[in-house]
Design a protein around this nucleic acid. Structure first.
Lengths: 217, 217, 217, 217
DNA sequence: AATGAATGAGAGTTCATTCAT
DNA sequence: TATGAATGAACTCTCATTCAT
């Protein structure tokens, strides 16, 4: 069932992003409590889903009193939003290095998918939380995928400008690639890791390379 | 918010499929009431989501008394399951003709995507319901996507055997295509229909055709 | 678990007693339906207790439609009352012959207890129904025990007048004997038949005989 | 309708016995609330019976919010069980001193009955609650009477060993005495106190003394 | 800052009873 | 007479949130 604990860094409430979500703790002790609540929330939401999760479940896991929750977050929705926001950037931070190190555009997408698969295998709860945000916090959901698609599009366009890909690559391709990644992540990351992540990524990338290559047709 | 009404056929509880979900009515009058409840449930779940939906909301829409709900369904979960099952087959029934009429394998996938886009534009609530089943009724969710992917794989394999596609097409490609379809459906079907469905489908299909063609490399 | 079926005679709605409880059926067919409902009610109440029992459970057992229940009884309470009344007289009818055949007063009580023990072993549901009437239909409950106690008292008094028992036997002794019988019935009839009914009755009767004998002090 | 208030001690949730029934309050304020709920439950169950009693009725009497009930008890059944358990021991605690102070075995039983009669006259709701447990919580019911009978048997046996009673006293006699007590309690304690408790007890004890004496036959 | 008791709106579900056929 | 659909009041239980300490 993958790692139950989310590394503190994963959900760290850093300056700006936390604005409006978590309430800024004033003391060091407060900071630790808030962090404990966030980690516990990641577990609770991941295991039980948003609606079955309970504040008391979160505080129990965190080892703090029920009332303390409201010292750091305004509501159940607020923690969830904070979680989605930070997991969203976590995924990106995790795959970014691989993409940067790639030989060319398509290899970058391959690296991105490979990294994504590896990530969700270790963080199944994150996958579920982001998915569920479609129903709990549609704005975050939309922002997450809109941003992700836009980044893919930018990379595709840049590669096209470098002459690697056909000139007509655009938003449709970006969304297609993202959907591909998400569902391969579901199938080979969350459901059943019966194929090495690199093989899945290589297969998909090969299809894309031919499909988006500048040459044929 | 798209069509509010689900065509009766969509949620008709037909013989076997409904087994165990809805309780079979014994009179014609009962059949109509059950259908009314199902239609109302499709609306209610589509608009408010599973958890915010209420039985009383469903019966109010259906114009029947609260208690009548339980004459035909065992629980809130049970209607939801019945709905997912039947919508799942509805989607398939809707796109099947286009796929069968296609010139070749990839053209079939193009027709499938085009049909899917058109369908979700008219039935946004169906989209949401199937998606939410991931959290409400994981079994139905899994069955729906596993079945869909398997059909795509079979079509790809058949096309490969006809010499249209590369011999190595398989499950990974099927899941990639399905994910592509789902996310293009989300972006261009549910979110914003700012591109004709046929154009989106043509763009994606072109990429697939080159990517899966037998020739290059 | 003893006999599940109550012989028709057991709960037969005879003329007067039924007045006001069951509605008099006009046809022979109706009589059979009413009887079927009563038998089914005896089972249902016996197995599940008054509150967990349901009208639909009764009609299902009886093999008739839900609505038919109200053709023959006014309410759930009404069947229950009818049942208590008739079981009450059933018990009496069952033990009466033994009492009449007894050699003397105390032997009559012995025979009564022995008969009662045998009866509850075969009709555990009856035991439960009469007991539960304390909470469902206090009037029937009170009437049942008041009548039973009064009969015992009359028998004791008669025996005293015949010189068999002390002259001071009265209501207190009657209630004491009845309580004894009921609890011995619970312990050795319903709970665990680990002692022959006759032995239990003989032991209790021996105690009574000495306790109520005219001789010593 | 007898005393409305149950002395705090009666329903105090003490250490072990309460394990699993009430949830241990962590503060003094919580202890008071739990006690108030228990007292209110005793009233409510006593007056209306288990099924007609409602949680909201209990909390209304207790002067707390509906939700507070669930802070201290898991369910309606749970309070009922807690109540039965503690009332059961209350009755015992109440009659024990009289029994210990008795001159001999039979006098102990006389004192026990007299004490019991006095107790049920003041606590009619307790009588009803224990009786109703036969249908609501059969385990508690069984435990209560099995324990009570066993204690009587032990006292009888001890008296027999002291030469006061016949050697063959045993379980049957114990159950007979208990049934006697319960029904005399019902008749002269709950229904109608038309005879002094001591007279009833004396009459019953005289019968027992002769019935169980070592001498005759 | 931290605790945990208190609150009460709200939901799903049951089922005796009535009604239309 | 028989059927079974329809009704809706009533109930238990949950839990996010507030409050007092």
């Amino acid at each position: 069932m993958a790692a139950r604990r989310v590394p503190a860094a994963t959900v760290a409430i850093d300056g700006q992003a936390a604005a409006g979500e978590g309430k800024a703790p004033r003391t060091e002790r407060g900071r630790r409590t808030q962090q404990a609540i966030l980690d516990a929330a990641a577990q609770e939401f991941g295991e039980r889903g948003f609606h079955d999760a309970s504040i008391s479940g979160i505080t129990r896991r965190a080892g703090v009193a029920l009332g303390s929750f409201y010292t750091y977050f305004d509501s159940k929705d607020a923690v969830f939003r904070a979680l989605v926001t930070h997991m969203s950037s976590q995924v990106r931070d995790h795959v970014a290095p691989g993409i940067r190190a790639a030989k060319d555009g398509i290899d970058g997408e391959r690296a991105g998918l490979a990294g994504f698969l590896g990530f969700v295998r270790d963080h199944k709860e994150i996958y579920r939380i982001i998915d569920e945000s479609e129903f709990v916090d549609p704005d975050s959901f939309r922002r997450h995928y809109a941003t992700t698609a836009e980044r893919i599009r930018q990379r595709l366009t840049a590669a096209a400008e470098r002459g690697e890909l056909r000139a007509d690559v655009g938003e449709v391709h970006a969304w297609a690639i993202m959907g591909m990644n998400v569902f391969l992540g579901l199938r080979y990351g969350v459901w059943d890791a019966d194929l090495p992540a690199d093989d899945v990524a290589a297969t998909a990338a090969a299809m894309l390379r031919r499909g988006l290559a500048v040459q044929p047709d």
